[in-house]
């Protein structure tokens, strides 16, 4: 069966419509079936409608996403309560350990993302992986820093990514590879990203899963939850009214 590929992290400037169209059509040309774009909660509805239209014209699907960057645990819980039912993908940018731990053990969080350049704030360790493995949270790795960084910085990042992937494998935490780019020149084909994942210890099949199966599972699971009639996994309202 042919795989459908997904890039869940395109950082688009939604005010630049021409630029957005260029990136989306490039993603479609490169073979992606789904793209995820972060929105801000305030302007989501307006921007999402426009972007869905652009994606439909390009022949790909859109997954709405929000990147949360809370400062405290309470702030994270509050944002999740407000936003979970509005977005298909929720990613938490973990700036401190408290947030990282809370995000990993909350079932409403889909993706855990860590700062690419500040290695002291990459908190994906054994404890984090154990928490994430119980709550379906996936580790998101953006490849853009690997294209942009050079020399010792890139070596250091590769070393961190290799360690994190090893831990994720041990605890069966899904790994999602995203581009994290804002322009079309840094977009790469899914097969190229899968090959690139070999640099941090993912074999060919795991690399392909990281750009297809794992992100698709997240989107499908959340689309089902957001659909009408959903009660719990496996339970749906199929009929309502007095004659039931």
């Amino acid at each position: 069966m042919k795989r459908t590929f997904a890039d869940l992290h395109l950082r688009l400037d939604l005010r630049d419509v021409a630029g957005v169209e260029r990136v989306v059509s490039k993603a479609a040309t490169l073979g992606y079936g789904i793209v995820g774009v972060p929105f801000s909660p305030e302007t989501r509805e307006n921007e999402e409608t426009k972007l869905r239209e652009i994606c439909r014209n390009a022949g790909i699907s859109l997954a709405s996403r929000i990147d949360l960057r809370p400062r405290t645990r309470g702030q994270l819980m509050n944002q999740l309560r407000k936003l979970r039912r509005k977005f298909e993908v929720i990613c938490v940018l973990c700036d401190n350990k408290e947030i990282a731990r809370q995000a990993a053990k909350d079932r409403r969080v889909d993706l855990l993302n860590f700062p690419a350049v500040d290695y002291t704030r990459r908190f994906f360790d054994w404890a984090e992986a154990e928490l994430a493995s119980k709550c379906f949270a996936a580790l998101e790795l953006d490849v853009k820093p690997l294209f942009v960084l050079e020399g010792a910085a890139r070596v250091r990042l590769l070393s961190c990514l290799r360690r994190e992937v090893l831990i994720a494998k041990e605890f069966h935490v899904p790994v999602v590879i995203s581009s994290g780019v804002s322009g079309e020149l840094l977009l790469r084909k899914p097969m190229e990203l899968a090959a690139f994942a070999g640099l941090f210890g993912l074999d060919e099949v795991s690399g392909l899963n990281a750009v297809s199966t794992n992100p698709l599972n997240i989107v499908e699971r959340n689309c089902e939850k957001l659909s009408e009639g959903f009660v719990a996994p496996g339970i749906r309202v199929v009929k309502g009214g007095k004659d039931c």
């Binding site: 490169l30 020149l185 840094l186 790469r188 084909k189 097969m191 190229e192 990203l193 090959a195 690139f196």
Partner: peptide, 23 residues
């Protein structure tokens, strides 16, 4: 082949211009 593909993906500049090379 996978190593070469990864290396090709990492090319971001060609003859002094921003560029991308795709397989």
């Amino acid at each position: 082949m996978q190593q070469v593909r990864a290396s090709i993906a990492s090319i971001t500049r060609l003859v002094g211009k921003d560029a991308a090379v795709h397989v």
